[in-house]
């Protein structure tokens, strides 16, 4: 991907109203790979006793990152929609830390794109969650 395309993709993702609401920042994109970060925000807490971010916010981050990875794949079109997404939660994200998601679109057919993603907090060795999903391929 050229710098210009990367810049366009970044603007596109960061213009999504819900991505803005969650404070998402696209940090890397190209060739079916994407990385998006989300800062800690007390408004997104799911369990008030622990201050841990709600799984739903992690799902939204994973979904956006997987979609971005699909759109950056050379064999996929410019748009996509989620067919299904499965998320496994390995451990609660540490309160106060930002969450970084990396998605990889590892296979694309004429109509379906397959994606895997991992989410980490500041501990890079122990993932917070992983996801696998299938997305539509459009405009081919």
């Amino acid at each position: 991907m050229t710098d210009r395309q990367t810049q366009n993709a970044k603007q596109f993702i960061e213009a999504i109203p819900h991505a803005v609401a969650l404070g998402m920042e696209l940090t890397q994109i190209g060739d079916g790979n994407a990385e998006i970060c989300m800062p800690y925000n007390p408004q997104l807490v799911g369990d008030p006793k622990t201050g841990v971010i709600h799984g739903g916010a992690v799902s939204a981050l994973m979904d956006t990152c997987c979609g971005a990875a699909v759109m950056s794949h050379p064999d996929a079109g410019a748009g996509t929609a989620t067919i299904d997404l499965r998320i496994d939660y390995m451990r609660p994200a540490t309160p106060g830390q930002r969450i970084r998601t990396q998605a990889h679109c590892y296979h694309v057919t004429r109509s379906v794109a397959f994606v895997r993603a991992t989410a980490h907090d500041e501990d890079g060795d122990n993932p917070v969650a992983t996801a696998t999903g299938a997305f539509t391929v459009e405009g081919r």
Partner: peptide, 20 residues
């Protein structure tokens, strides 16, 4: 408005649906 994922259709964000 902040629940929108695709401003062109427009449609709810897939992540919002999952979270809901």
């Amino acid at each position: 408005q902040k629940l929108i994922g695709n401003p062109f259709i427009p449609a709810l964000h897939g992540g919002v649906t999952a979270a809901f």
